[in-house]
Design a protein around this nucleic acid. Structure first.
Length: 204
DNA sequence: CGGAAGATCCACT
DNA sequence: GTGGATCTTCCGA
């Protein structure tokens, strides 16, 4: 893994849709006590901020939960959903933008056995079981609210260069689970690696 | 202040 | 395909 370099904060200080596209194929590295977990990112979604009805920052909403969204790019926004699961975002752009990229799915490159333990899987995982969804991905990497507001360009959770995806291998479509968002529900802000078995449902 | 819905997942039918 | 788990936030009374 020595040839992979941690992406600098400047990587994130761009529009969310560019960062979302550019995160495909990058490696999400999680250092725990004595072990390292690595997921290759295969699915992301961009959330644009105040003008995006699907975003937690819609209309400039700012609560205790969403305050991390309004930092400058490069930090993690981790929130609890349905009272049960966590979702990992990379904040993008500049301070006050409220924009971010949701990391929705990855394929395990290192530490799959430990990820399986974190996921409490009984059976041998089928494609998509280990980290094929935002909640599963956080469980697999032991990500919870303790990592909210932490940097992704240094520290125990970070993103590195990886095996990137050519434009011909990218599928772009509407985001998942935001039917309530009016016109924004149709915006093409979900990015997947075409044909990858770890991409979550609905598969493009 | 109560109810509902949510960037989800799992077990069960 | 359906419903339950369980917490934050929003909205109407």
């Amino acid at each position: 893994m020595g040839r992979f370099r941690t992406l600098p904060q400047s990587f994130y200080r761009r529009p969310a849709e560019l960062v979302a596209r550019d995160l495909l194929g990058r490696y999400l590295v999680r250092d725990l006590d004595g072990s390292r977990l690595v997921l290759r990112i295969v699915e992301t979604e961009a959330y644009l901020g105040a003008e995006d009805r699907a975003s937690h920052a819609w209309g400039g909403r700012r609560t205790r939960r969403t305050s991390a969204l309004f930092r400058d790019g490069g930090f993690a926004y981790v929130y609890l959903i349905y009272g049960m699961y966590h979702c990992l975002n990379a904040v993008t752009g500049d301070e006050e933008d409220g924009a971010a990229v949701l990391i929705r799915a990855g394929e395990a490159l290192e530490g799959a056995a430990l990820m399986k333990t974190h996921r409490s899987l009984i059976r041998e995982p089928r494609p998509g079981d280990l980290a094929g969804g935002p909640g599963k991905l956080c469980q697999a990497l032991a990500i919870d609210g303790g990592l909210n507001r932490t940097p992704l360009f240094e520290g125990s959770l970070r993103v590195t260069t990886g095996r990137e995806v050519a434009d011909s291998g990218v599928s772009i479509g509407p985001r998942v689970g935001i039917d309530y968002a009016g016109e924004a529900a149709a915006w093409p802000l979900r990015f997947c690696e075409l044909g990858n078995r770890e991409v979550s449902r609905p598969r493009p």
